[in-house]
């Protein structure tokens, strides 16, 4: 089982092929309980495919071994809410059980009075991301999977969201897997880093991301364009 030695997830030799194209191959990694794993990679590297595969939404080869009875909360990168006349309260009330709307909003540092009756489509980018995280937290998950949790959020509001996630992780003892492109966020707020480009290009402590040799492995050797003076 995956919970031996404190692991909540063990992935071994994971592969995804769709319509004769290899999207992921030979992906193996473990995630320790209560830690944050950052997933990094260029566009088209298969980051979202990896998260969706971990949710069992995509057929795959290899094994994905979650601990028994694990509860997973998921925050997708894109949602369609602009045209839906649904209030925050209604959205957070879909499905049964879990914590109350107020508790869920408190966790993501939103005031019930301020947002509960607002239409999803009129929320700011930051508020919407927090509401989506509140949704994912409603059923007290053991793990949160976040696909670029600051999509549509301005730069100033990005860090407070990661700070909040860090707090939630500590107080609720949950494990977080998140996709991000922000190196500062990876260094500051995550424990481990999984860099992929269809296969794994780096897997280890997040702190290493600052080192040039790690960056060289993740991003490849720099390719310089030669320009003649005056032609640049």
């Amino acid at each position: 089982m995956a919970d031996e030695n404190g692991y909540i997830l063990k992935v071994s030799n994971l592969g995804v092929r769709l319509q004769n194209q290899t999207l992921l191959e030979n992906i193996s990694f473990n995630v320790r309980k209560g830690t944050t794993l950052a997933i990094l990679g260029p566009n088209g590297a298969g980051k979202t495919v990896l998260l969706r595969t971990l949710l069992n939404l995509i057929p795959h080869t290899g094994t994905i071994d979650w601990t028994e009875k694990v509860k997973i909360g998921y925050v997708p990168q894109y949602v369609t809410v602009s045209d839906v006349p649904m209030s925050v309260k209604e959205f957070l009330s879909i499905g049964n059980g879990g914590i109350s709307v107020r508790e869920a909003l408190n966790l993501v540092k939103l005031q019930e009075k301020e947002v509960a009756n607002k239409r999803l489509g009129v929320l700011s980018g930051g508020q919407l991301r927090r509401v989506l995280i509140a949704w994912a937290l409603k059923e007290k998950p053991d793990v949160l999977l976040l696909d670029e949790p600051t999509t549509g959020v301005d730069m100033d509001s990005e860090e407070p969201i990661y700070l909040m996630l860090n707090e939630i992780k500590k107080t609720n003892k949950i494990t977080i897997l998140l996709i991000t492109h922000n190196i500062h966020i990876i260094e500051e707020y995550t424990d481990d880093l999984l860099a992929i480009n269809k296969c794994i290009t780096y897997c280890g402590p997040s702190q290493q991301i600052g080192k040039p040799e790690t960056q060289r492995v993740i991003y490849g050797e720099p390719v310089c364009v030669e320009t003649l003076r005056g032609e640049a």
Partner: peptide, 16 residues
């Protein structure tokens, strides 16, 4: 509610 949730995000609905 389920149809509306799937409209907001199909992945969210399936994951649920």
């Amino acid at each position: 509610d389920k149809l509306v949730l799937a409209m907001i995000s199909e992945d969210l609905a399936i994951a649920k």
